[in-house]
Simulated assay, not measured.
Amino acid sequence: MAKVYFHYSNSEGVCVDQRGTAVGNLTEVRNHAARVVQSLITTQGPEDWRDWTLHVSDDLNDEIFALPFSSMLGKLH
């Protein structure tokens, strides 16, 4: 099992995941990343999440992939 970190950022700042999450494989990493983004964008509040990106990295701080929140929000009408 590996530990990965789910940081998210926009042009104004970064929220750093200090704890990390244990995962077994890349499929689990991608599924967890989607759940993190979905959880944040469905939270009540004034935040516009379109400019945010989730950065998934390993314990050496090497980025595995990035997931723009906009990819899960859809387009504005």
Rank of each mutant, 00 (worst) to 15 (best):
P46G: 13
V23P: 01
V36L: 10
S71P: 01
E47V: 15
K3D: 00
F69V: 03
F6K: 07
F65R: 09
S11D: 13
S70N: 13
N31V: 03
F65N: 04
M72I: 02
L73E: 14
G45D: 10
L67N: 06
S11P: 00
Y8S: 08
Y5A: 03
D48E: 06
D48G: 01
L73F: 08
P68T: 07
N10C: 15
G24F: 01
T43E: 14
T43P: 09
E63R: 13
G13Q: 04
M1T: 12
S70G: 07
F6G: 06
V29F: 09
T21W: 06
E12W: 05
H77Q: 12
S39L: 11
K75V: 13
K3T: 15
Q44K: 12
A2Y: 09
N10T: 01
H32R: 14
V23R: 08
T53C: 03
N61H: 08
V16Y: 08
D59E: 15
W52Q: 01
L40C: 13
F69S: 12
P68W: 13
E12Y: 11
L67Y: 07
D62P: 02
G24K: 04
W52A: 12
M1C: 13
E63K: 01
Q38C: 02
V56M: 06
N61R: 14
A33Q: 03
L73I: 14
G24D: 03
V16H: 05
A22K: 08
P68Q: 02
N25M: 04
E47S: 11
T43M: 13
D62T: 07
Y5W: 06
W49H: 06
G13V: 10
L60D: 14
L54P: 04
I64M: 06
I64P: 00
F65E: 11
H32S: 00
G13W: 03
L67W: 03
K3R: 15
N61F: 00
